[in-house]
Nucleic acid binder design. Sequence first.
DNA 1: CAATTTTTGAGGAACGTACCTCAAAATGAT
DNA 2: ATCATTTTGAGGTACGTTCCTCAAAAATTG
Lengths: 356, 356
Amino acid sequence: MRPTVIDIAREAGVSLATVDRVLNARPGVREKTVRAVNEAISKLGYVRDLTAANLARGRSYKVAAVLPDTESQFLQSLAEALTEAGSMAATSRTELHLYRFPAEDPHALAALLGSLSDRNYVGVALMAPETPVLRDAVRGLRAKGIPTVALVSDLPNAGCDHFVGVDNRAAGRTAGVMIGRFLGGGPGQVMVLGQSLLARDMIERRRGFDEVMQRDFPGLEVLQSLETHGSPVTLRQVVAEILTNAPQICGIYAMGGGNRTLTQVLADMGLSGKLTVICHELTPHVRAALIGGEVTAVITQNLGHLARSTLRVLRAKVDHQPLDEGQEQIRIEIVLRENLPALPDFSAQAPIDRTS
Amino acid sequence: MRPTVIDIAREAGVSLATVDRVLNARPGVREKTVRAVNEAISKLGYVRDLTAANLARGRSYKVAAVLPDTESQFLQSLAEALTEAGSMAATSRTELHLYRFPAEDPHALAALLGSLSDRNYVGVALMAPETPVLRDAVRGLRAKGIPTVALVSDLPNAGCDHFVGVDNRAAGRTAGVMIGRFLGGGPGQVMVLGQSLLARDMIERRRGFDEVMQRDFPGLEVLQSLETHGSPVTLRQVVAEILTNAPQICGIYAMGGGNRTLTQVLADMGLSGKLTVICHELTPHVRAALIGGEVTAVITQNLGHLARSTLRVLRAKVDHQPLDEGQEQIRIEIVLRENLPALPDFSAQAPIDRTS
DNA sequence: CAATTTTTGAGGAACGTACCTCAAAATGAT
DNA sequence: ATCATTTTGAGGTACGTTCCTCAAAAATTG
């Protein structure tokens, strides 16, 4: 049996109330007594039962996830992953609510964040572009003791408690190695496409990619990034034109966004499997393109992992518990057709068992 | 506020005792009343607080992990990962104890497993070669209601509740694609080395590897596996000899075991970076070899993830809760020098905070 | 409709912790 | 030694659930 506070009290020769005062750092205990209690704790190897503590405190983990309301497949998958993670954690006093904000309106976002503390949220996960208004809003949350984590895209100057996402520079480097190796080091040209929600990510990826290409694959010429903000039509035209006129292009690095359009162009031009194409984020479309041969490899982060990590980090912050850094490091995953993870079969899912 | 059993009782117009009887499937409740209670449950969206339930039940998750006592780096890392995961989970009523058994003695293993139920273990994680004696022992555990999961290597006929580990056939396929692509499809020869604790893993890997090589890379000749059971000296000699006499060899697939010796030979022969070498399991030595260039890519499973998954699965089984399949699927990870995850810095780790 | 059986209700103790109050004891200052 | 102050103890209630007992109510049987 694990020792309890009662065992500690007996061992230290003090009352339960005193042990409690020491454990919860309440005042009014002599230095000497504190030491006696701590000795008993380490002698018996006492570890506080957090579940009982939270029960007693009446604490539950009510957290909010705040995302832009853009309709990209990535965001939709992320929202699903978060909802799923939230419902799986419902049995352990955890509630997660999803909020969306108009992507172009930092003030609406700030207002939303400001309102969360009144609604008794104890933690917030946030994916948003960094603006001064946002920084203030995050600071406001933290001032009220509400831990805030940045999701997917870091907010280095907002003072978040944690960043849940991948190192995009390393992701770009990985893309570089993959494309360089798969192309045998050249010769040839590599086209780079960029169109992302959060500019920061793309800059980091490009930086990492160039780093590797310059150093390790001088035989491959990397073209300037094509930034086709938004419009699929433009993207379609530009890509088709370039591919037609530049036969030296043997690889494409799609840094983010527009994967659907890109793979369609490739399929339409009969280029499936002919080029080495690397992109980011394993959305349903990209998955299909991987199977179809339009895409060679995908650099991705596991959104399920990301979502669960978000919840774990927020809980740990709320509890003032240390993080298991290893667990919370979101790995950069390389997915080829051959290691494509099976799609979970939702239809066959077991119902939640309430009987035990 | 989340609804509690009291709210359910009020809503259904019955007493707390009846709600409890329904929730815990105790007899003596009319069909009609059961329905009324269940309706109240779904109407209010009640979800049982498992932490409070376990507290009341006096249930804690005391589980045993049983591993062979071989001194490989892989097993040592696995043991560390399990211990670490156990200590991180200590605050949530979880205890994990590690047991080792003499690798060549199935009867000692069976005896060990038999003794676990008397010591109040509620779950067992097991890594062992499958033998008839083992199957009986596992059946015995399950008969006593102790869930058992197979670790790293599946035990398909032992009737375990779950398998925690990667699909080795898929891992072999991935190795095949990587080596094939990196070598540009040939021409050349690929050497295959095998020496594993658990024969089953290796057979599966080889099968997956051959599958891909035959289908997608006919230009590469795959040599017969070199099985150097145990002896590093033999391995050293054989590998050195073959590499000297067969200049057509451009790739090596090391399916398991002996990585340390292999990379030493390669370094000694001045072949670092010259061959495409793929091996399994990111142990400290392999990590060094990746940096040094003796190894090109590593197919690995994240042992931290494996260990935490083991605990989660066992807890879910003990609670008769459904698994989050997505979370428990151990991904096949491809590690190159460029996406080598940072080694966690243990010296800088924060102490456990007991004050909140 | 009485006797029997089944179903239900009311209540309490327990799990390990938090947090509160009030009084008693120990300590420090004068 | 007296007083004020600090420290400690004893005891209670609460969190949401489990599990127990005993009696009351309702349903079923003959």
